[in-house]
Structures are given as structure tokens and as C-alpha cells.
Design a binder for these strands. Sequence first.
DNA 1: AGACCTCGAGTTCA
DNA 2: CTCGAGGTCT
Length: 706
Amino acid sequence: MNEDVKVEDLTRPQAAAELERLAALIAAANTAYHQEDSPDISDAAYDALKHRNAAIEARFPDLVRSDSPSEQIGARPAEGFAKVTHSQRMLSLGNAFAAEDVTDFDAGIRKYLGLGPEADLRYTAEPKIDGLSLSLRYEDGRLVQAATRGDGSVGENVTANARTIGDIPQRLSGAPAVLEVRGEVYMSHADFAALNARQAEAGEKTFANPRNAAAGSLRQLDPAITKGRPLRFFAYSWGELSEPLAKTQAEAIERLNSLGFSTNPLTAICNGPEDMLAHYAAIEEQRATLGYDIDGVVYKVNDLALQARLGFRSTTPRWAIAHKFPAELAWTRLEAIDIQVGRTGALSPVARLHPVTVGGVVVSNATLHNEDYIAGRSASGEQIRGGKDIRVGDWVQIYRAGDVIPKVADVDLEKRPPEAMPYVFPTTCPECGSAAVRETGDAVRRCTGGLICPAQAVEKLKHFVSRAAFDIEGLGAKQVEQFYADGWIAEPADIFTLKERYGSGIQQLKNREGWGEKSASNLFAAIEERRKIPLGRLIFALGIRHVGEQVSNLLARHYGTWEAFEAAVREAAPLEGPAWEEMNNIDGVGKVLATSLVTTFAQESERASIDRLVGHLEVQPVAAPKTEGSPVSGKTVVFTGTLEKMTRAEAKARAEALGAKVAGSVSAKTDLLVAGPGAGSKAKKAAELGIETVDEDGWLALIAGI
DNA sequence: AGACCTCGAGTTCA
DNA sequence: CTCGAGGTCT
């Protein structure tokens, strides 16, 4: 009955009735989806219902129902886009905040390239558009795929939507056979305002800022909706190419422009840091009148041959940096300080704020890092707040670090209420009451409750099912919390007995809010699927301190099987002896890490929990590469310089798996030197000794196909 | 021993 | 995304 009434025109009683109606509709749609094979309403219609519900709740927060659809667990998953693996990773950029960071950037590059301060070195400088990056793949001049950045390696296929954007050509003439153009999708201020006006008029939700509007528009499942949204695109980079575009960054951009792409008119060539900073100032001055959002200036080494020499760090290129504009600031009142307990027992203080808009987003929480941060003293120079302590009741200045994480920048002592007392950091865990202690030299205070602490237990379980660990579909953070609260799951092993214990458990699951027969059987199937688990994932899932994803894979590659790994950890328990030495000799594993691993396994309760878990699993070994016929078997290899296609730790592990011995320095015994860019004295020495030297590609070719 | 780099852990909002 | 800290390189 209220369906056609705009959200903002609803009276209170109407809103209450509408929320009731929507709750019933959405619940019915969820049931239909979970219990039958075909949902009864389209995704778009379903989303519209949820949007309307959220909009009304936002306007009448006190009318939010206890059975509100926005709170439901196990609701219909967002119908996703297909995944796309980028042929070349889409990296992010390093950040500069001060002029000094820019001069450091220049100095670092000169040093890396072996150039003096006077040598000619040019950079491009262009505005950093605040939108979302997109990679467009053209084959033989036709647009064949458009993908979002995603996590850098795998993005989402949004080709149909990208085709609706006017700035994106469908066809190119005179382009390389394979051309991946990268750039930014954005919305202008004028278009954003007009869109929001239309949205409001239609009773649809409005967007907080142009960036969200652009992101929301590009990620529409129905391209027809995207087509109606005024999106634009600036090209600024490229991925895979069948032939080079040009010799310099500036010429490449010009080439993209002549192929029909919009490129930013404020792109300039700068000669050194002074020039770069001047251009930065010039762009900042025009910021308000550009008509679209920018959040900084990007500098890139102009010479593409030099870019190639500089290469990449793990997540960022060495030859580019983003010089950010100062973050937007806002003042608000600190209403409370809460303590959260993490997986490792870390007590993290969180500021509860009177909601305030910062950079187009309403913020009501902010991280306070740790005890010292609140106290206003810092071990390692975080002096943004000039040594002022933070008290409940204070007026605090908030900014969003990297435009994401809200932080407290300053405290207004003038406005401090006289009754405000310094915050006393708890020395017991607020969740379980165990002592919370701070190791000397550590910034964090940790709950000592271990598995007794419910917060730690839940966080460990969440970690266990997380994406890089067991990644069980249908068992996310929310479900884990609920199952833990209901006593269904107390430790990881319990996940694998869930079906036995709640056997015809589907019956019981079905009675839960938001669960139907289909989602329950899907969950059990997903759990079954994960009984087979790669060794690296298992080690990571255990959630041992200092043992993250990378280290877990390193350990898995080194030991190969669960049996070998487990035996090694047990034998290393005295923190000495051959097994201990071997572990410490793994590249990337040091004392702190090895101690953490070995002592965790040595704890009776942890140990028992791990044994119970592994009993339910079939751990897949890391395929041991054959060392037979390996061209490097028995040889001594040294790596130097920067490796671009693998980490040093990875390279070493791989070489050892192939039967080579990896040494740290070049000597007469060295058989082969693998030298990446930036190689220095080792390469010189190898040349003097007449030792065979190859670059990274040569090394990869050598070991290929084994 | 110090500089540099990577990884781990924790955090927010849509 | 950022900080802190562990680990390696020079």
C-alpha cells in the first residue's frame, strides 16, 4: 500500500507499517531462495526491497524491527560477477604525504639506478582521480573484457557495464593486437548532483559521494541501469601489450589519447622534485574547480626503460608514487572508549564517536591503536596529537587515514569538560577477566586467557574459516559467532562433526532464522569439500602468532607433508638441536617466529585441539618437485639484486626443492649467480671469479619444465 | 649495526 | 589501509 510513497514522505505510522511489510516480503524471498531451486523474484527486485528497507530504517532508526531484514544472517548472497584473473597484476601505489616524501622518492630512485643528483631524470605528474580503477582488454582493436581491480590479482568481469560508458571506445584502429588499457572510472560533480536528485525523486537511495556513486553504478548487475548513469573514464596506464606503446610515459599517454581515450589534460612532465612539487601546488589550486574529485597527484618516472629497470616491490611499483592531499578533518565528541579483544588476545581500544561526516562518510567509530596512543605518548614518534591524552567527553578531531580508517588526529583541550578523567586502560581482559599483560617493548596489551577467553576463541574460529584459510562457503564470521554462542562449535574440529552431532541436523538448522534446507545442505557439502585441505592453508588456519599466510606457505613448501611438518615442530621443541636449526635456516623464518610456532604446539590444550582437528582431515602435501634431472641439483646458487617474479624466500625454497644449495654470498664454490636489477658487489665479484651469471628470466627458463 | 623490505595483525564502512 | 615488528641485506 505504501509502495509508491517516497521514503522521505512517509509518516511515522506509515513507515512502521512499511517496515513490517518489507520484512515479510524479504523473509518470503529468502525462504523461496533457500528452499527452492529458483527464487521467486529477480535479484534487482530483491535488492530494491532491501534498499528501501534500509532507507526507511535510516530515517526512522527507532522503528528498526527486531526481525529487521538488514540484520538477517544467511540471507541471499549477492549475485556476483564472474571473476577475472588479470594477466598482469593491478598494483596500488606507494604514498607520499609531505614534500619530504617526494624528495625521498626521487633520491631513492637515483640511488637505485646509480644516478647522481645532477643526472637528468624526468617524471610525469598527473591528478589522481578519486574513482575506481578499471582494466580494459582490447584484442585486434575490439573491447573484449573490462575488469575491476579486485585484490589486484583477481577482479570482477564488468564488461557489459563498461560498454555503456561513453568515454570507453568499443573499437580501436591502429592499436596493438593485444592492448590492456587501465584507468579510472569516475563521476563528475555535476552528474553526481543530478543523479542524486533523480534518485531522491524516485525514492531510491542517494549516494554519499561521487566515488560511491561511480562504484555503485559500475557494479550494477543490470547493464541497463549502468547505461543510465553518467560515468566517465580517464586512461592513465596499461597492462599486457603485444608491442610497446612508446618510449616514455608521456608519449604512451598521448598515444592512448590518439587511440580515442580521454586522458587527463593536467598531465605534465617535470624535471626533478622542485618541479613536481610546483605542479602539485598548481593542481591543488585548481582542485575545487575541476568538476570531479581528485585526491592527490601521481608521479611516474617518464622513461619506460627506467621504469622496467626499477621494477616492483611486492605490491607497488618503485617508479611511481601518489602524493596525497591532506586528509579532510572533522570535530566531534568522544562518547566512550571500548576494548575489543582480537584473535591473538590483543586488547584494541575503539573510540565511540558522536556520528560525524568525514570525507563524505558518516563515521561513528575510530581506532585508538593501543594504550600509549590514548595516553598521548608514543614509543616510536607518532606525535600527531602532540602528546595530549584522550579522554571520554573530549572534542576530538577525526580524519580517515588513506581515506579509509578513521583516526583521532587531535584533542581540543579548551573544550575538555572539567570532569573528564584520564582513561585507565584495563589490565584484565574485559571478555574473560584473565590478566592482560604487556611484554616489555611491546605496544599491545594481551589477554592471557588463551582458549578460555571467548573472544579469542571466536576470533580464532573466524580466522579458521576465513578466505585464505578453510574458506568454507556458507560459514562466514556471522555464522561462526552464532554457532559459537549456541554452543554448536567451540573449536575448529567441531566444524567437521557438526553434521554427525546435529545429524539430521538439517532439521535443526532449518529452524534457525534465515536458514532453509537448501542452505543447510549446502553448508554441509561445503564442509565435506574442505576435509581435503592443502598443507599451507591448514598451517595458516591454525592462527599461530607470527605465522601468517606467506610464512605458512613457506613452511608447507619446506616440509612438504603434515607428518614431516608436525614431526619437525615436535623435535624442535627444546629450541635447539638439528630440527630447530633447520627451521631457523628457512629463509623468512627467524627466532621469534620459530619460537612462537614450537611453543604453541608444545602447549597441551593447543596440541590436543590440533590433533582433534587433523583427525578429521586429509591434508594434501605440497607436490615435491623432482630433483632428478634438475639442472641445478647439487649446485650452489646465489641470488642477488631484486627479484620481480618471486620473493627471495620463494626463490630460495624453490631452488632448494630442486636440489640446489642456496648461499648468501659469492665465493669460489658458487656455481651460479642469479642477478636481478640493483645487483651490486656480488655481481662484480662473480664476474671476477668467472662465475656463470643469469638474470631472473634466465633462471626461470633454466628451471622451467621440471 | 643500521637501512630497507615484507609480513602480520588489527580496523571502518558500504 | 597502516603501523609495528621481524628478518635480511649492505
